[in-house]
C-alpha cells in the first residue's frame, strides 16, 4: 500500500472531535472491499468487520481514533472577527499567524492574526498568548461573516502535506490518522486470508475529548481482546528521552498496568520472531489513550497499545516516518494471524 497517499487522503478529511458526522462516510469508503461488513454507529465510529471461520472464535477489536483536535466558532464580533474555542488540546502559541478553514454553510479560509512586534507591549513579548486573545480574520464584514458562519461551526488548521527527506511526512492530524492508515493497511494485508477469529477494525471518534468513541464502541462490540493504535512522542531536540521515541525504529509497544501482560508479551515475541522493528513504551499509569477506556469496558478487556512515534504532536507540523506505519501494519497483521493457533497462551 502507498501509505503516503492514504495519509494524504485521511488528513484531508475534517473530523473535529464530536463533529465526525460529516466524515464517517469518507472513512468508511477507505475500508470498502477490505472486510465483510462496515457499520457506522450512533457515535460515528466506523466499524469494519472481518469475519472468522473458527468454531470458538473470539472477537478482536483494533481501535484507532480518527477524530482530530480543532476548534469551534465561539463568537463573532461587530467587526467580523471570530473567536474560537478549542476541541482538544492546542498550545495557543502555535496558532499565531496560522491559516484556518471555517466549515460554515460553505468552506471559507481565514487567518489567525498576530499582533506585529512593533505593537507588542514589553509584557506581551514575555508572556505566551492565550486562545481568548486570538481572532480569526476572514476579510469579511460581520454581516457577511454571519451569512456563512454560525456559532458552533467547526474550524480546522489549513496546512500543506509536506514530504520531507528520508521517508518522513509532516502535516496536521497525523495523530491519529497514522493509526487509521495502519488499520486500513492491516485490513489490506489480511484481505486475502481467512482467519479463525472475528476482527473488528474500528476507526473511533471523540478520543481527543475523553476517549468517548472507544468507550461506547468497546461496550457495543464487547471484544475478547483489544489492540489500540495511536501516536506517541517522537524524539525531538530538547525533550526528555524518557517520553520520546526515535522515528524509523518501529512502533512503541506499551507496557504497564493499563495493558495486558500476556497480550503485550505476545506482541514483543511476534516482533522478535519475525524481525519487525519495535520499541518499548513504559506507561506507569494512565496511557492517555483509548486503552484506558477499553480496558475497563463491561467486565474488562485484555488490551494492548501500539504507538507510532510522532514529532510535534498537536501542531500543524506533526512529523512521522512512513516506515513506522509499515512496521505497525506488519506487527499487528502477524499478531492477528498468530492468534489462530496461539490464542490460549495470549489471554
Amino acid at each position: 500500500m502507498d501509505y503516503k497517499n492514504v495519509l494524504k487522503e485521511l488528513v484531508g478529511i475534517p473530523a473535529v472531535s464530536g463533529f465526525e458526522n460529516v466524515s464517517g462516510a469518507r472513512i468508511k469508503s477507505l475500508m470498502v472491499g477490505k472486510c465483510d461488513e462496515i457499520m457506522i454507529d450512533s457515535f460515528y465510529n466506523v466499524i469494519g468487520l472481518k469475519k472468522g471461520n473458527g468454531d470458538n472464535r473470539k472477537k478482536i477489536m483494533i481501535s484507532a481514533h480518527y477524530d482530530e483536535i480543532g476548534f469551534l466558532v465561539k463568537s463573532i464580533d461587530d467587526k467580523g472577527f471570530i473567536k474560537l474555542t478549542s476541541m482538544g488540546g492546542f498550545d495557543p502559541k502555535i496558532l499565531l499567524a496560522q491559516e484556518v478553514l471555517i466549515h460554515g454553510t460553505r468552506e471559507i479560509e481565514g487567518i489567525i492574526g498576530a499582533k506585529p512586534p512593533h505593537l507588542l507591549t514589553p509584557e506581551e513579548t514575555k508572556t505566551a498568548v492565550k486562545l481568548v486573545d486570538l481572532s480569526v480574520d476572514t476579510g469579511m464584514e460581520a454581516s457577511e461573516v454571519k451569512k456563512i458562519v454560525s456559532i458552533g461551526d467547526i474550524v480546522t488548521l489549513k496546512v500543506p502535506f509536506l514530504e520531507l527527506q528520508g521517508g518522513k511526512v509532516s502535516t496536521k492530524s497525523l495523530d491519529n490518522r497514522s493509526g487509521v492508515a495502519a488499520t486500513i493497511g492491516i485490513m489490506n494485508e489480511l484481505n486475502d486470508k481467512t482467519l479463525k477469529n472475528d476482527i473488528y477494525f474500528v476507526a473511533t471518534t471523540q478520543e481527543e475529548v475523553g476517549l468517548r468513541g472507544a468507550e461506547v464502541s468497546s461496550y457495543n462490540i464487547d471484544p475478547d481482546i483489544a489492540i489500540v493504535i495511536d501516536a506517541c512522542h517522537g524524539d525531538m531536540p530538547d525533550c526528555s528521552k524518557d517520553f520520546t521515541y526515535p522515528l524509523g525504529k518501529g512502533p512503541a509497544i506499551g507496557i504497564g498496568p493499563n495493558l495486558h501482560k500476556k497480550l503485550t508479551k505476545k506482541l514483543f515475541d511476534i516482533a522478535k520472531r519475525n524481525g519487525v522493528l519495535c520499541q518499548t513504551d513504559v506507561e506507569p499509569g494512565n496511557t492517555g489513550t483509548e486503552a484506558w477506556a477499553i480496558q475497563v469496558s463491561r467486565s474488562g478487556v485484555p488490551t494492548a497499545l501500539i504507538s507510532i512515534p510522532l514529532r510535534y504532536m498537536h501542531t500543524g507540523t506533526e512529523t512521522l516516518d512512513i516506515a513506522d506505519i509499515e512496521s505497525s501494519v506488519k506487527l499487528v497483521s502477524l499478531f492477528l494471524a498468530a492468534l489462530d493457533d496461539e490464542m490460549e497462551e495470549t489471554v
Binding site: D41, S42, F43, L72, K74, T85, S150, I151, G152, R212, E215, V216, Y219, N220
Partner: peptide, 24 residues
Amino acid sequence: IQYEILERGGSDPGAIHLTAGGIP
C-alpha cells in the same frame, strides 16, 4: 433560540450519552 458553547463544567447529558454503548 441561542447556541451554547460552555467551556467549563458538565451536565447530565455527559453521563447519559456514554451509557451502555452510546445514547444520542
